[in-house]
Amino acid sequence: MNRLFRLKEMPLHVMLLPGVLFVLLFAYGPMVGIVIAFQKFSPTKGLFGSEWIGFDNFTYVFGLPNTLNVIRNTIVIAVMKMVGGIVFPVMMALLLNEIRARFYKRFVQTIIYLPHFLSWVILSGILWDVLSPSSGIVNDMVGWLGFEKINFLGNENWFPFVLTGTDIWKEFGFGTIVYLAALTGINPALYEAAVIDGASRWQQTWKITLPGLAPIIILLTTLSLGNVLNAGFEQVFNLYGPVVYSTGDILDTYVYRLGLVDFQFGVATAIGLFKSAVSLVLISCSYLLAYRLANYRIF
């Protein structure tokens, strides 16, 4: 019986093999490169020939005047994106859920989902035009409302909000779909009972829909904690410039400039390792939280 059972499973294991190999090769293999963070790395001497300097790269990086500021920017931008990335899709899902015309509902759903498929390279060009103080439609509206026109991409106070706003705009359609799916899982009998008890539309939303969504909201929130140091390289890289370094420069762009433009691989790896370490702690915490709050387990 036991033998037969194993035989039955064999094809599944074999099919798993390419995936496991892939992960080993491309996720675990490159981890050897972490040693660069502790070396005075010279590309031509290679991983094992470079001079070992212990934690010097870390002391150097955290001694640089910009580093702490960059970490702060990263956290601020990432947290704003996380919060917005939960609030807006939930609101949108609730609103869409109230719509009766199915065609219209699907239509809206598709339209708001579309930007998700555009790359930031393209979007940055579009956004530049849309947000331009001289010719952009957004600033035209700001002007009609009687305010001074705003240089969104060239003003360090506005820049983090522009990043957050555009990121939410791009991704909230995707989130909406997840929550809409969760909404279909709520037992309709609950609504019928509420109607009989005389609950208004608003009360139904408040007492049935939101509590019904709570587990998935909590789950997605806790899982996204691991991304606190990921503020979106592609987006920032395509939109920023020296004028907004002070509030817009994030860890990933900083590493890019140090490592690939300026050739300081040891230093760049040290920051990357720092980022990974923090993320690992956060992901562990969020996993624990997800288990406690939403009873979600992977293992």
Binding site: G154, Y245, R257, L258, D262, F263, Q264
Partner: peptide
């Protein structure tokens, strides 16, 4: 130059740009 150049360059670009913009 190799070690500090990157930071100094960023600082210069930021300061020059801000001065010109009156920021």
């Amino acid at each position: 130059m190799s070690e500090r150049g990157s930071t100094l360059k960023d600082m210069e670009a930021t300061v020059f740009t801000k001065i010109i913009m009156g920021a």
